[in-house]
Design a protein around this nucleic acid. Structure first.
Lengths: 140, 140
DNA sequence: TTGCGTGCAAAGGTTTTGCATGGCA
DNA sequence: TGCCATGCAAAACCTTTGCACGCAA
């Protein structure tokens, strides 16, 4: 009995559990391997192919976001909660320690306007990662 | 006789030709596969491992830049000419048509200051790619 | 001789694809 | 019955590593 439409609109166990887990952990970036491991350790394994297929589907539907934060590492998938839609946030990735910083600030939102008005480019901040050095690493 | 130090400071054919070609095409993003193909078609093939090893070396030395523009695709390598050092530029990638736009503008440089002063984050603009929609695709 | 760059081939990791199975409508 | 999601295994793909060879100092 797979019908769990009341929760997510998806009907199979794999779909339901994947999306539910992502929604349970808003803003957290999971790799496909981590997700596979998570469900395997819970005694409800999901095949690798299914994980990739469903994640890609959720991305297409706009339910979740796909990031390539590690620069050459695996792709990351995360659900961004609705408050993040109103106040979009930006990702800063430290190239030294690998930490990921979430930023919400007006100055960055102004770039969005600037890029559109002066360069005709409609920026999608959610997919952009700023690379650099975090405060701790900079001081060290 | 590999000594061509006068040109690039490197001594082997592979080193010399790789760097020379990258410098010949400033701002152009090449994948390892494209570089391999380029030299193969010229009748002077360079092994895959050598290409990766030397590119990585040039990156470490700061001679060239490495980008992950395709989001999950291969890494890209490019030489950015010296004028670009004085006026750093930014990369905007269209998610629709895949085109890459190089931007130089003050507003974006101001973000650099803002991120550092307000968030303690030392941004490395050269490695950051802004994803979104280019003007043509937005109108279409 | 020693050090280093090289090519080949193999291995590694991530993601995609083919195919047979089985559930749900 | 027909459609679609699933899991397994194999393939594809990019990149790294191991190793023996050869050039240059």
């Amino acid at each position: 009995m797979y019908t769990l439409a009341g929760k997510t609109g998806y009907r199979t166990r794999a779909q339901e559990e994947l999306l539910a887990y992502l929604k349970l952990t808003p803003g957290v970036h999971h790799t496909a391997a981590e997700l596979k491991e998570h469900f395997a350790s819970r005694g409800a394994p999901i095949g690798t192919a299914t994980i990739y297929r469903q994640l890609e589907r959720f991305v297409e539907e706009g339910q979740i976001h796909k990031y390539f934060i590690g620069n050459g590492d695996s792709a990351c998938y995360s659900f961004e909660d609705s408050s993040a839609v109103c106040s979009p946030h930006f990702h800063c990735k430290c190239e030294q320690c690998g930490c990921l910083i979430h930023l919400e600030c007006k100055e960055l939102e102004e770039i969005e306007t600037h890029l559109l008005e002066h360069h005709g480019f409609e920026w999608n901040p959610g997919k952009t990662v700023f690379y650099g050095l975090c405060e701790q690493c900079r001081k060290a």
